[in-house]
Design a protein around this nucleic acid. Structure first.
Lengths: 203, 203, 203, 203
DNA sequence: GATGAATGAGACTTCATTCAT
DNA sequence: GATGAATGAAGTCTCATTCAT
């Protein structure tokens, strides 16, 4: 993190860390954290195993940082889309972003969906935020769309999030890849259901 | 391998086998398959480690059988609920069953959601059926509810399944347990969305 | 071992033991004692694993008995051949017997050659006799053929035994099976060497 | 698997690797590969069990390398002795080398004799060559000694090899250790038999 | 006489982590 | 900054043996 005056060491350090980051992203989602060994990550990054510990301190710390990085990427994009003035359009764009993100980084969706639910996950600190940050963003948009009782808000958002993540991930797994637009509409059924059963917010 | 009891499968199951089954169910979901050791399962079942191998041959085989058993339980119940003449009521009951099942056996939801999505899971043969069997049942009910284009069917069912599983599991994890009825309605938003945007089937 | 008055149990007992014997013979030579499990032997014999312990008490005891049985078979035949009045003919017949025996029961040759040499073999008590009984028979015949110094006797016999066993076993393993007669002559070279370098015994 | 040091094989061998090699040599022959555990080897070498896997990858790989190393040692010496201009002297020296080698490394003789004959040995790739390389060297020398029919060559060499290995190994096992010279002569009886019954090669 | 469920010691192997260089 | 040799705890699995039935 420090920025010493001599450039070369910093460049090399950054290079190693960056390569480890990239290798982690690729392997973590393909095989999951448990099935991926530090050896493999180091080998794919082209550095020695010790370098992992020099740069990150532990395997869990590295995974945590990778997960956090990915989470920031997704949440940032989602928040930007949430700002669209028309709430239904905002939701459509958010779903699109989620679907595309999962297609681009199946890794993260995998880990989030699977590990997020595991109560005593080692990366809980990095993972839970993904869910809660997305949910709170979703709730904000939903509040601009329909009038919801307080206790309805989080469940409604959770259902949409679950539908989106699950549908998106399934596209990347199943043999018959569903059309992106069709998947998007299926996810948005949830939104349309809300619109059909709840009073709309006046713009 | 040692003299496997495949002569008359499951007839007169040993007490040991039953106890291992129960211990597996409890531990598998709490910690996930990878994080649960054969030692722990055997210890919780009150038998020796060798007994696991005498009865199941391998850890994977045992996990597979446990998963299969749970899947049969859920799918059987879902299929019965699906037979309700009114399709929307059928879907409501199916969602209720799923939510209750997850509450009763958080284990299975955990494994299904997390492992199902992992392409090269070792228990793929036992797991994939859970998804596909549920989806095909869901599709049958949806076909009785609204008129769907062929390519819409699976995505619509997947979105509902994802919403239900994710919401149900989230209830068992989060601090503020959402009300069961509210969760149910949130899941059914997806169904109501379909009803709002598609032509209804004449009864 | 006891012979109870009612015939049926004895017949069954004999049957189990006999079948275990045969299964052992077949497996022991193919895979060696260490690589052959009690399970496999029992399974091939069509009896339960417990029957092995009921009949023999232990794996080692069973192997020992099987080895002893084979040894008796060979030694008995060799001793009969050794009685031929012409010593060289006796030796030729003994070698023939050994070669044929190895061809018929590659198992025994395998175990004898390999385990015999292992100092702390578990079956030492049953195996060593094979070697010493054959050697002493050989020595007796050699003494009728040439005049040997006392210290020459055992080494000469050992060399012949080694040549015979090794050559015989090699025939059953190698791709290009050597002609039986040619192998026999190669083994008898040792005898002819003795005749060429030592004083003959007057008949 | 963990970062195997195959970059520059054997250059600058670690002290650990060398010590494991030596411990393996000592234990492998005393007890045979199956009866020797990785734990024992590591303990005798004074390193941890993990070091075995770091350096060799597996037990079989380690055994294979040890066997190969020993085979090279013996074959190299035999080939040098085989170059002696007088073929009978060459054979006598070869037999001497074999006897001494077995006395020094009873281990290898043990494994070669016992495992070589086992068709489906796991170390077949390392072991078979021992036999065939020695046999072909022996045949070359025999061809310089007497005129042999093509089909006689390999059997003659095999008989000599068997006599030598067996006699040598027997010396290290039996209580009454035969004199080295006497054993040597017993082995060479085979050669003298060839000389007595076949036409000599003109020098 | 025979069975087979159960056992537990011990085997091979993996892998996150440490540390001297 | 980085390396890679070394470690040891922990994991999966095998198998000879015991014992109640």
């Amino acid at each position: 993190m420090t920025t010493p005056p001599n450039a070369r060491p910093r460049v090399r350090a950054t290079a190693s860390k960056k390569r480890l980051f990239e290798a982690s992203m690729r392997l973590l989602g393909t095989r999951g954290p448990n099935a991926t060994s530090v050896d493999e990550i180091a080998q794919m990054a082209g550095v020695s195993k010790g370098t992992v510990y020099y740069n990150f301190g532990s395997k869990d710390e590295m995974i945590g940082q990778v997960l956090e990085f990915g989470a920031d990427m997704l949440v940032t994009e989602l928040k930007r889309a949430a700002e669209h003035p028309a709430p239904r359009t905002a939701l459509r764009e958010m779903a699109t972003i989620a679907i595309d993100f999962v297609e681009k980084y199946p890794s993260f969706a995998q880990i989030w969906i699977s590990e997020q639910l595991r109560p005593e996950s080692d990366w809980g600190d990095q993972i839970t935020p993904v869910y809660s940050r997305v949910i709170s963003t979703l709730v904000e948009v939903l509040e601009r769309l329909v009038i919801l009782a307080p206790e309805e808000k989080q469940p409604a958002a959770t259902a949409i999030f679950g539908a989106a993540m699950f549908s998106a991930r399934m596209r990347t797994v199943s043999d018959t890849v569903a059309d992106r637009e069709v998947t998007l509409n299926a996810v948005l059924n949830s939104v349309d259901g809300l619109l059909a059963t709840h009073q709309h917010v006046q713009s």
